[in-house]
Each structure stands twice: as structure tokens, then as C-alpha cells.
């Protein structure tokens, strides 16, 4: 059998997916995604249920085989590449009721097992976080609540020290204080190490300030990949009398058109260099990331 020569991938070159296609049976879930993750950034991956977020992350971390395309870390293929996979931690949502292997494990066993796959696993951090979340190593995963399972996945992600770390719904089941704590912890770790994180979440506004870039996945395709600040400042909600709003929105990208009585409103996503005309009697309001996401991903999103 031919032995391919594989070198330690250069993580500074980033993690790249090219033409990623994923089919489950006849159903195509991802349709040719190109995505480059740069080192040292926190990315947010958002999308509706079934948009393909978890699938995409599982492909980027070589947990599942691609139907077509390739995933490269520093130019090296990631699939079955121990050196590359040691640099990528995809800490998945735990679901002991659906997985026999997970159900039988205790917290300590789970962490010990995961630790084997990451050469820079941080034991000190692991025990600090366990104490912080008041989790015991001898507790069975099957007995933990959803929030506590999220904590285990967060500990796994943090302690792995993997240069590329993906978290799938880390906020699921956590109360508001724990969520805030998580984001603080994430920022602290990020400031200290400059690791790259990809966070998928449905609680968007809470995460918005933390995310340097936002990736919106819709129906198996990347709809948006932009700097979060720039995306938010390029989107506005305009409202007023219909003819005025129509005049103002002429030629612009308009989403989520809605009418309330005589007044209408819509979200406008300005391209670079575009501006709203100043001679229209309209009200202009800023929109949050969550609203932008909702407007872009609503059924029949683009209107007018």
C-alpha cells in the first residue's frame, strides 16, 4: 500500500474547504461550499435548523467523509490525517440518550478519552473548569442535564487547546449567567492563545459582540461570510409611507418587506459604497445581527 508522505500542517495558513458537497443517500445537504477559516479569529456559524451547520463542521473536522470536494489544513488534506486532526477539535453536542457509547461513560472517562486525541490537552484547565461548573468526574453522562452536558462539551473544547476549535450550540441548555460566563471564558482563552473558534448558535444577539466574522448558512449554501461589525453597520431597517420607502430602496438589496397599515418597512443591505438617498422622508433604524439573520433567511427573503 502506498504511503503518502504527510508533514505537520502549517496552521497559520488556515483551514480551507473547497467545493464541499455532502449527500446523505439521495438528499444533498451541502451544495459545493467554499470556505476559508483564517487563524486567530472567532467565527459565528448561524443558520436555521437543518441548514447544514453540524454537517459542515463535521466535514471540516474530518469526522464524516465528503461526497465531493476537499478540506485542507495548511495545504494538507485533513481526512485521516492524524497530524491535521490533532489541530482540529469539533466538540459536538452530547446526546447520551441516542448514543450507547456515550451513555455508559462518566465525565472523567469522556474527558480522558478525548484528551488522548489532542497532544496539548490542558489538564490544569480541565480541572479548573470542572470545579467552576461544579461537575464531578465520576458523574455519568447519562444522568446529566442538557446544560451540564453543554458544560462538558465546553470543557472538552477549551482544554483541547486545538488551534481550530468548533463548538456546536455550546449555549444550549445553559442559563443566561452560564452563557455570559461561557463567552467571557471564550474571549479570555482567545486573548491568551489566539486560537480559531467557530461557534454555532441560535441565540445570536448574545454572541454577536464576540464574533469577529459571521457565516450564515442557508439551505446548504453560504449566504453570508462577513465581518460582523461591517455586516451590522451595512444593514438598516427603513420605514415610512410606501412610496417614500419604495423610492429610497430603489436598486438596493431589500429583504423582509412588511406592511403595517399605511406604513411599510423593510431591511436594506447596503453594498459597499451604497447609501440611502437623503431626500426621502423615511425613518432609518439600525438592526441587530439576529434581525439581519431573520430577514435574510425568512422564506421568500428577498422581496420587492
Amino acid at each position: 500500500m502506498a504511503r503518502e508522505e504527510r508533514r505537520t500542517p502549517d496552521i497559520r495558513q488556515g483551514l480551507t474547504g473547497r467545493g464541499i458537497v455532502k449527500r446523505y443517500g439521495k438528499k444533498e445537504v451541502l451544495h459545493g461550499i467554499d470556505l476559508a477559516l483564517e487563524p486567530g479569529k472567532i467565527y459565528g456559524l448561524i443558520g436555521r435548523n437543518g441548514a447544514g451547520k453540524t454537517t459542515l463542521l463535521s466535514l471540516l473536522s474530518a469526522q464524516n467523509p465528503l461526497t465531493a470536494g476537499e478540506v485542507l489544513l495548511g495545504g494538507e488534506p485533513v481526512w485521516e490525517n492524524i497530524l491535521a486532526m490533532s489541530c482540529i477539535c469539533f466538540s459536538r453536542e452530547l446526546n447520551p440518550s441516542g448514543e450507547a457509547g456515550t451513555a455508559a461513560m462518566k465525565v472523567g472517562q469522556y474527558l480522558d478519552t478525548a484528551a488522548a486525541y489532542f497532544p496539548h490537552w490542558d489538564r490544569e484547565m480541565e480541572s479548573r473548569l470542572l470545579a467552576h461548573f461544579q461537575l464531578e468526574r465520576r458523574e455519568k453522562l447519562a444522568k446529566l442535564s442538557k446544560g451540564m452536558l453543554s458544560m462538558v462539551t465546553i470543557i472538552t473544547a477549551m482544554a483541547s487547546k486545538a488551534p481550530y476549535t468548533f463548538l456546536d450550540e455550546p449555549a444550549a441548555g445553559l442559563d443566561v449567567i452560564a452563557r455570559e460566563e461561557f463567552y467571557r471564558m471564550l474571549l479570555e482563552e482567545y486573548a491568551a492563545t489566539g486560537r480559531t473558534f467557530v461557534i454555532s448558535t441560535h441565540i445570536i444577539d448574545e454572541a454577536a459582540a464576540v464574533l469577529e466574522e459571521t457565516i450564515i448558512l442557508k439551505d446548504g449554501e453560504i449566504l453570508v461570510k462577513e465581518n460582523t461589525e461591517e455586516l451590522v453597520s451595512s444593514c438598516v431597517y427603513i420605514s415610512g409611507r410606501e412610496e417614500e420607502v419604495r423610492k429610497a430602496a430603489q436598486g438596493l438589496r431589500v429583504y423582509h418587506w412588511e406592511a403595517v397599515g399605511r406604513s411599510v418597512g423593510c431591511m436594506v443591505w447596503l453594498r459597499e459604497g451604497e447609501e440611502l438617498p437623503s431626500d426621502c422622508a423615511i425613518q432609518v433604524q439600525p438592526v441587530s445581527l439576529q434581525k439581519i439573520f431573520a430577514a435574510l433567511c425568512q422564506e421568500g427573503g428577498e422581496a420587492q
Binding site: Q63, N81, S86, M105, Y117
Partner: peptide
């Protein structure tokens, strides 16, 4: 096996 693959095993 699925569990270990989910943890990052080849």
C-alpha cells in the same frame, strides 16, 4: 467507534 470518531479519532 462512532463515539471516538466524534472525539477526533481517525
Amino acid at each position: 467507534i462512532p463515539q471516538l470518531i466524534r472525539m477526533g479519532s481517525t
